[in-house]
Design a protein around this nucleic acid. Sequence first.
DNA 1: GATAGTGTTTTGCTATCCGGAACATTGATG
DNA 2: CATCAATGTTCCGGATAGCAAAACACTATC
Lengths: 255, 255
Amino acid sequence: MATDGPSADSAGVTTTRKTFALLEALRDEEGCTITELTARTSLTKSTVYRHLQTLTELGYVIERDDGYYLSFRFLQLSETPRTRTPGYTAAKRTVFELGEETDERAVFIVEENYEAVYIHRYGSLSDTMIGKRRPLHSMASGKVILAEWDDDAVAAFLEATELEQLTENTITDPDDLYAELETVRERGYAVNDQEHMDGLRGVAVPVYTPDDELLGSLGVFGPTTRLPDEYVHGELPNRLWDKAGEIKVTLAYGE
Amino acid sequence: MATDGPSADSAGVTTTRKTFALLEALRDEEGCTITELTARTSLTKSTVYRHLQTLTELGYVIERDDGYYLSFRFLQLSETPRTRTPGYTAAKRTVFELGEETDERAVFIVEENYEAVYIHRYGSLSDTMIGKRRPLHSMASGKVILAEWDDDAVAAFLEATELEQLTENTITDPDDLYAELETVRERGYAVNDQEHMDGLRGVAVPVYTPDDELLGSLGVFGPTTRLPDEYVHGELPNRLWDKAGEIKVTLAYGE
DNA sequence: GATAGTGTTTTGCTATCCGGAACATTGATG
DNA sequence: CATCAATGTTCCGGATAGCAAAACACTATC
């Protein structure tokens, strides 16, 4: 069931909301029939059919014998933000190298609408996580990004969001978060110590452009058994700083 | 000016077409103001405003001081097809390795609606090409894919499309294409010899799943000066076969 | 052949979307 | 400060586009 579907209480263009409810149902499960999409959305059969026909004509949905699929044409819409700045493209290559060198999951994450968004990721073949959104406060990468903001900006974030408790370790008290961000600023890196998911640790550093603007956050995560304290506070941040510096150099001097 | 916008002659849900006209205008140029989008689309100012507000509420568009931007949320829609099969994810890593090893542009391409679509690419920081669509007949990767089809399927393709002439070398005669596909089948690889763009050569091979289904096409391309005949017909296809085989093995036995 | 399930088309109704106009805001200029 | 132009935001009445329900067509199964 698509979670971002149209709501009767929402303003705006209702037809557009219905279209996206349908697209999100397909996002969550491809190859659905019209009957299945009717069940997954709160739309009627003929509305589903009509929207699908339109989306198919526009090239955003593919109809096959067994059902409907999202088209690769959405790549054109997603690559526009993902290549918004050459830094994002440079980070892609770095994430790959980092993943290979550490033999762990490597990620490049940015913030959008107060959420951490996976832009690039090196890891398993199954779930690429790209495009997925996570709370800023419970991730090393998110904390790195928050640490770049002044207190007013962090206060606005706290006003607009809730410090959701995901594990026993998750920071849920604003004062604790301010203190943690201060630690991140001093250290130059952030650690997620099972704050997002039990058994998982992560380290992240900020990535700056040659103009010293924050580009995003470069991070590595893995099971606690493979990321002990000495590594998390020693070699790993060092390696991440090196890699972040490589991105900066690539941007300053070209490939 | 968005090229896939709504047309007065089209059937279907007109409101949805207007929404996508707007999204495509933003795809082509980000950071536009309402006035600019009104000029770029044939929509009126209040329609533009209304749709943008809806898209912003849905999280697909971001409003900033200087204009409107596409959200990373589109990654969620594009990653669904791009991770439709683990083979595509495996191909991503291989494309990177291939690009690094050859020091050329490396690509993984699939077919959708009779067009070649760049799914993964290793190359310059500027234009990543991902999501872009190209004619099948003028690309090595496209010819590899066409060579996998039987004559009926190729005939249907020829019926539905036009063999557009892009360079002097482009194949524009159906009989020539059939002959070329036969050559591709015999050789096991395809060459694009300045058929798509003057000065550019490419080589591509098919990538198969462990079930021997066609996954897509793995290719390398670069300027003719760097891709001479001996390389194009010798070491390069060999390397591509090796890499394609690696994908197959990865899929068969895991990472 | 009959039947159930699913996809496609039809159709009348009305609410939604639209576009034009009014209004609000902002920045620049004198 | 006042004025003005440009741009963004809201309002509003009308009509048509979108809707949902129903009818119809198609397919697979027994």
